[in-house]
Design a binder for these strands. Structure first.
Ligand code: FES
Ligand code: FES
Lengths: 152, 152
DNA sequence: TGAAACGCGGACAGATTTGGTCGTATACTA
DNA sequence: TAGTATACGACCAAATCTGTCCGCGTTTCA
């Protein structure tokens, strides 16, 4: 019913956590999982997906782990969700290659596709940086201008 | 993964269908289901929910059926989805009464709630009328001004 | 007055998706 | 070479969604 999967949730949490610890070179999946009390192995697989999508850089071996591949401002929530949950369409008919069996009769697909694009746009305008708790001491650069203000 | 359930899809289709046939007093669930080739009994239950939510008016007995309870412009997509799928939160943690077990550690719930509100706003700004194929012959009243333009 | 057409609502089974675990292979470091 | 970490697939369990069935109440009409 139009909600993110837990996996996407976890992914966002992990990325936010990484964004808030820029000093550390790499953070293991277990470290992040422990910090939030989520299943380590599950998070590992999520981070692997994000790595394959180029959002994270990974490093095996001791003191290895994951690090953001780009600046937190350059990673949008949309990319994260898309990477973890696959392409999302608000219309339920995504089975098969294109459209479901009743595509010809269904008349709301086209209008809803527009809604879909709008939501995608909102998600695209939100970066990990926007989610994170960056100490906005003074004179914040205000580089990011999300469609949705997340300011508190 | 952030998509509507088929039920919500069906519900929107049905309402759109009703909006496009304003002359008929009432339309049976079976009629609508046949028009789109969707399971009649399933659609019936959906329409029942919409009736209980006050979006439709029902009439039992022969030649009975359903009709919009209000003008199509006054029924938002949000109401329909909310009525069928229940309250939706973009964050997956909706179990129990309030928040999931890891609410304290989860740090993205609050920022995502804002995204949630934005999406809800988009959905609220779209009416069944906007979805329907109203012959906008000339000088359309342009009474509705959805956040998302659905014009073709 | 009774049958037919229709809405109402719960129970329920099958299909699908999600959440999570396990095992093993691979890569890197000390 | 021992230890730590990622990579990846198979797999299972739980939750959800989809769809069907059946009995009941209501309205219309012959
Ligand atoms: S439900 Fe499949 S095309 Fe709309
Ligand atoms: S995942 Fe439950 S509070 Fe965020």
């Amino acid at each position: 019913m139009l909600n993110l999967t837990k996996k996407a949730d976890y992914g966002l949490m992990a990325l936010k956590y990484l964004a808030e610890h820029p000093e550390t070179v790499a953070m293991s999946a277990k470290d992040i999982a422990d910090a939030y009390g989520i299943p380590a192995q599950l998070l590992a697989k999520i981070l692997q997906k994000l790595t394959k999508s180029g959002l994270l850089k990974s490093h095996a071996g001791m003191n290895g782990g994951y690090a953001l591949a780009r600046d937190a401002r350059e990673i949008s929530a949309y990319e994260v969700i898309h990477s973890i949950d696959g392409p999302f369409f608000i219309t339920s008919c995504t089975k098969g290659t294109n459209g479901c069996e009743l595509t010809p009769s269904c008349t709301i697909k086209e209008p809803l596709a527009r809604v879909n694009e709008t939501i995608a746009g909102v998600l695209r305008s939100i970066s990990i940086y926007d989610l994170s708790d960056h100490e906005q001491t003074a004179g914040q650069s205000e580089r990011s201008s999300p469609l949705v203000s997340l300011a508190r």
